[in-house]
Computed example of a mutant assay.
Amino acid sequence: MHSTKSAVFLLALAISASCVVATPHLEILNDVFEAFNTTGQQIISGLVDATKNGTAIAGEFLDSIRNSSAQYTHETVEFAHKIADAVHRAATEGISDFSEALRAAIDRLHQEIDRVRNILQRQALKDALAKLQTINAAVTDLEIAVNNLNDRIDEKKEQYSLIIQEKWSQWGDAQLKRVDEQTNGVGNEEAEEILDELVSRYSAYLHSCLEELQAQQASYEQNVHEAVVKYHNATNNLAAQIELCTESNLNFLSCSYGINRALRGLASAPADLISLKLQGIRLLAIGLNASGCVGQTLAQHELEKPSVERELDEIIRSYQEQNSSTDDDSNSDNETTTVSEESS
Rank of each mutant, 00 (worst) to 15 (best):
V339D: 15
V308Q: 06
E181R: 08
A240W: 05
V179Q: 03
Y202T: 02
T23D: 15
S68D: 14
V87Y: 00
K131V: 08
G258R: 06
V48F: 12
K156Y: 09
A145R: 05
D127P: 06
H81A: 14
Q217E: 05
N136V: 00
T55N: 10
E158D: 15
I95E: 12
A58D: 05
L283I: 06
L149H: 11
E27H: 09
T73S: 14
D49H: 08
N67R: 12
L273P: 09
S268V: 03
L298W: 12
N251V: 10
N136P: 05
N223R: 10
A22H: 04
A12N: 12
K5V: 12
E243R: 14
L312W: 01
F252T: 08
L210H: 08
E304H: 01
C293A: 10
E247L: 11
T297L: 07
P306Y: 01
N331K: 11
A105P: 00
S6C: 09
L278E: 11
I135F: 03
D328A: 13
E193R: 05
P306M: 04
G187C: 11
E304P: 00
K52F: 10
D154I: 11
D49G: 01
H81P: 06
Y160Q: 13
A174W: 02
N331V: 09
V199E: 03
D333Q: 08
I15K: 12
S6A: 13
I43W: 12
Q241E: 13
L26K: 03
H74G: 01
A7K: 04
I316M: 04
E193P: 00
E181V: 02
G258Q: 06
V116F: 00
E166L: 12
A240Q: 07
A17F: 07
Q165C: 00
E243M: 12
I44V: 15
E226Q: 14
I144E: 10
F33R: 13
A86M: 03
V339R: 14
S18N: 13
V116L: 02
A145Q: 01
N249P: 00
Y202F: 02
L10V: 00
I57M: 08
R282M: 09
A271I: 02
E158R: 14
T235L: 02
R115S: 09
G187Q: 07
L195W: 04
E342K: 13
R264K: 14
T76D: 06
N260W: 00
N289Q: 08
I281R: 02
Q296F: 06
A240G: 00
